[in-house]
Amino acid sequence: MRWYALAIYVFLYLPIVLIVFFSFNSGRYAMDWQGFSFQWYGRAFANRFAMQALATSLEVGLWTAALSTVIGTLTAIGLERTRGWPRRLFDGLIYVAIMVPGVVIGIATLIAFVTLFGALNPLLAHLFGPDGPQLAMGRATVVGAHVLFNLAVVTLIVRARLAGLDRSLIEASEDLYATPLGTFRQVVLPLLTPAILAGFLLSFTFSFEDFIIAFFVAGPNNTLPIYIFSSIRRGITPEINAIGTVVLIVSLTLLITAQFLLRSRDRAVAGKG
């Protein structure tokens, strides 16, 4: 039994260890160890296309995280004040947004955007002339499609935390004549902060790692996962491992932090949870 468990852990970690290990390979092929070197990191950071893709991914990730966190938090608070069918409707939509596979979300948003832009662009050209602004697929459309999924996730996380809040704290604040806004800012918001931060980090990581949705709606822009995918198609070099190692470090650090923030709720003031 122990040995079986050990074997599974090796199975789980070996692939990740291999990516990191061969990123330090001095040879040209990913699995053919020639000696230790940092050269592929140097090449990756000097690679204009990779860096452009990284910048796009960071920008898309930050926008996605910011918007999802704000909207998801508002939604969680709004749902806390809602009963009956509107609440059930939102619950249903949140589950649909999470359960519909990424490939379908990608397709659906692609054709919806293309249809919408196809209808609006002639109007824009009419209003502003042929050199005026035109709508096109790009970073904004990726952010839109990413926010859809992540606002659902943030709503669930913040709502779980809200449900675990100790009501007596809010009542105490109200008894002490705090205005509702004051209660929110001074009591509720600080208690929600770990969940909100965790939601931010989770959304950023999802967006930073997502390939399939961006593949459909990114238009001519490459995000880092799209860049990695097309590099793999062209041939495997340790440069992919080097970029991959950077991605792994970024996303694992953020996710472990997020998890830590979510765990801390057990130790925090939250009562009934």
């Binding site: 852990y9 692939p15 291999l18 790692e209 996962p225 990695i228 992919i240 792994l248």
Partner: peptide, 29 residues
């Protein structure tokens, strides 16, 4: 600790985890 160790690889980008298997199962693996 063991439970956390189960979930950590799952957080890593799926694209990269599958890329790793391309290396392992590929001709040099």
């Amino acid at each position: 600790l063991l439970l956390v160790l189960v979930i950590v690889p799952f957080w890593a980008s799926q694209l990269l985890r599958i890329y790793a298997w391309l290396l392992i199962l590929g001709s040099k693996g």
